[in-house]
């Protein structure tokens, strides 16, 4: 078990190193930030000085080594755009994104689980078929379209929810939360719903498939034969059996949602990491882009490794796989 854990972690570190290299190579190609950092009246001489001090005139190899050693220490430098430490900058935005993603995940579980169970046990009824059909529409609607429509209906026409931002936030240590104020909670609703839509349909479909499988199994047939009430079979036995894959998928998808949130954040002007990233992309704020890529990959890889190890703890047969 120890060997397995160590090998998984070593593997994760390798992947992270490769991502860091990739980040550097990509951004080395991405363009010249100096012209944006200065104003109309700055002379060519001063521009060249800045380029020199940023180390943009050094050889690519030198810059690369510098980047990787610094990144390994968690030092991604200072944002070209607003002169702040990149890690602090991302740290400030992280709570906004995480709250959005967690609330969206919660919504998707609360809505997706019952719908999945319903479509499985009432299979073939007109309403479950319509739900199945709606779920396809759910995965097909681009999330930016969903966002635009929500703003149009609930903010502009009905005027019952804010269209942008996070509302009032309360600072708890370095964490800023919008969950404790009425305006913060109101601002969270539309983006969270927009982000959760895709996830709802995924969970609903997964639960349905798992439920159908379990319902076909012998122990359910046996339980039925023993005369245990249906709802008890469904919710006590069948649902419990299919929770594991649902929880796994939900956990692994948190990483994906954090990345996908960048679209929702852009539409709703949600001050999270994703919006920071998109702004960095337009501005060619290379340190921020590099750090964002590395952090997202880290979350991804960490979640995957964690799930792998957890599974190996539960099911020893998996330890020798791969």
């Amino acid at each position: 078990m120890l060997v397995f854990t160590i090998s998984r972690i070593a593997n994760a570190i390798m992947v992270m190193l490769a991502v860091a290299m990739l980040a550097f190579v990509i951004f080395r190609l991405a363009g010249d930030p100096v012209e944006l950092m200065v104003n109309e009246q700055m002379t060519q001489e001063d521009r060249d000085n800045i380029r020199e001090r940023l180390g943009l005139n050094d050889g690519t190899a030198t810059q690369f080594v510098r980047f990787v050693t610094n990144a390994a220490r968690g030092d991604f430098g200072i944002s070209y755009r607003n002169g702040q430490d990149v890690l602090t900058l991302i740290g400030e935005r992280f709570p906004a994104t995480l709250e959005l993603v967690l609330v969206a995940t919660l919504i998707s579980l609360v809505v997706g689980l019952p719908l999945g169970v319903l479509t499985a046990i009432k299979r073939g009824r007109w309403y479950t078929e319509s739900l199945q059909f709606l779920s396809i529409i759910g995965v097909s609607l681009p999330s930016f379209v969903v966002g635009i429509l929500l703003i149009l209906v609930f903010s502009v026409v009905l005027g019952i929810a804010p269209s942008f931002g996070r509302g009032e936030v309360i600072q708890i240590g370095w964490w800023s939360t919008g969950l404790l104020t009425p305006s913060g909670r109101a601002a969270l609703i539309l983006p969270a719903v927009a982000l959760s839509l895709y996830q709802i349909t995924l969970i609903m479909r997964l639960v349905r498939a798992e439920m159908l499988e379990v319902l076909r199994s012998d122990f359910v047939k046996f339980a039925r034969a023993r005369g245990i009430p249906r709802w008890r079979i469904y919710f006590r036995h069948a649902l419990r059996n299919c929770l594991m894959p649902v929880v796994t998928m939900t956990a692994m998808n948190v990483g994906s949602l954090i990345a996908f949130a960048l679209i929702t954040e852009t539409v709703f002007q949600w001050p999270g990491m994703g919006m920071l990233f998109i702004q960095a992309v337009t501005f060619l704020d290379i340190p921020v882009m590099a750090a964002y890529l590395c952090i997202i990959s880290f979350i991804f890889v960490a979640l995957n490794t964690l799930v792998d190890i957890t599974y190996a703890v539960i099911d020893p047969r998996l330890r020798n796989a791969r």
């Binding site: 390798m14 992947v15 190609l29 991804f300």
Partner: peptide, 26 residues
């Protein structure tokens, strides 16, 4: 497969954004 692992360690939308930004820039 390691290259595959690395690709999978980044969300698809992120890869697409990065590749299109950088390649277009070139």
């Amino acid at each position: 497969m390691r290259i595959g692992d690395i690709t999978l360690s980044m969300p698809t939308i992120l890869i697409a954004i990065l590749v299109s930004t950088v390649v277009r820039q070139l």
